[in-house]
Design a protein around this nucleic acid. Sequence first.
DNA 1: TACCCACTGTGTTGACCATCACAAGAATGA
DNA 2: TCATTCTTGTGATGGTCAACACAGTGGGTA
Lengths: 228, 228
Amino acid sequence: MHGANIFTESLALAGLDPDLATGLSDLAREMTLSTNEVLFVAGDPGDSMYAILEGSLKVAVISAEGSEQLLAILGPGHVVGEMALLDGEARSATVQAIKKSQVARIDKADFDRFSDANPAVYRHMLSLVSQRLRQANDVLAARSFLPLPGRVAVALLQLGETFGKELPDDRLLVHYKVSQADLAGMVGAARENVSRILNTWKRDGLISRISGYYCIEKPAELARLKAM
Amino acid sequence: MHGANIFTESLALAGLDPDLATGLSDLAREMTLSTNEVLFVAGDPGDSMYAILEGSLKVAVISAEGSEQLLAILGPGHVVGEMALLDGEARSATVQAIKKSQVARIDKADFDRFSDANPAVYRHMLSLVSQRLRQANDVLAARSFLPLPGRVAVALLQLGETFGKELPDDRLLVHYKVSQADLAGMVGAARENVSRILNTWKRDGLISRISGYYCIEKPAELARLKAM
DNA sequence: TACCCACTGTGTTGACCATCACAAGAATGA
DNA sequence: TCATTCTTGTGATGGTCAACACAGTGGGTA
């Protein structure tokens, strides 16, 4: 039962009415994913969605040559795989656990039945998907308008929003282990150049590393890079 | 009343139940846009959506320096501006008529009331937005994996899908006036390079121009460029 | 403790593409 | 009809960033 509670919180976090979240959670089946385990790959038929209870997952599109473009890194409280469930098409991206994770699975049939009875769920999913689309457009805009440093700044600040812990003096600790390779995947760049950029920032005191985690020392300065 | 008919078709095109489309169309108010008229700009509060009855509109994000990244070119039967209506945030892109156009406007309040009474509308919007998101992710993937020629091929074929007229011998006429600048905006490149690419294709017989319209002579060959 | 393996830092080289520059052609409208 | 403006073609040049090549680092574990 404690799982159901977390699940409820997960969906409630995203703004869904508590009663409905509870109703949905009754339909869910918990699953555990080990590190690097793949939840589904692009092309799979999509007949379910997942709420993340614990851990984190990455959503990526993988090219023929094997390089990957990350679309999102998701943590507890997020929902993943909802698209295929909503429009009935195949999965358009690959989702993989980046650490040991717990998810709760809801099958399309159950979801449809429940939502038809409770249209507020539809409204909730609509605003969720809208926001995803918004974010996707932002990323695309960043990709076309910003040079690499700007894009890395965007990515880092985004991670800060998702996984950030406030520290004194306006510093922000990104409490999540990101490798340079992951960052590179997010911004669509070569890992080496991300390394170079992070180091110049480190030298300039914009960021630092605290036991493996990146810490944004001057969020304002980083944010300025987004605009130029 | 004839306007309502067209409107009904518009939404029905996208797969909505005819009765519901009619119901929605009763809520709509027709508007005419002249060439280059701006429907709304990014940042505006979004309290309505529009169905396109006639003409075509472009959806774009515009950078501080004034260059634009096109997100979509839409024609009759398409719906635009639905995102802001669904999640209540401000407009995230700018929409502008590229020729004289007719649109039908539905206000958020009316839409909400109607959809609450007819949840099927929600399902329909969900699949619509999902597909947009899917497309956005595809574009982003193309942007990171494909070199310029591949991206131009993708854009051209996409226009072919939206505005294409089949000709004998598997040829496809893109019955819509695209400037090289528009194409460049879609693929996020400099206009000059798009010009160069189109010309090599013209020389190789992949495409041709028929009185100002591009004609895809060998769709298969163009499609091959998408994968490499 | 020592080994291993994944992650990180940095130099070098070259491809791709943006930018500038400008000429020629097409379209719009006064 | 002419002039003005928008579109297209093509060269030259340089900047950004990917690709390759390794050396250094650190955390886990046998």
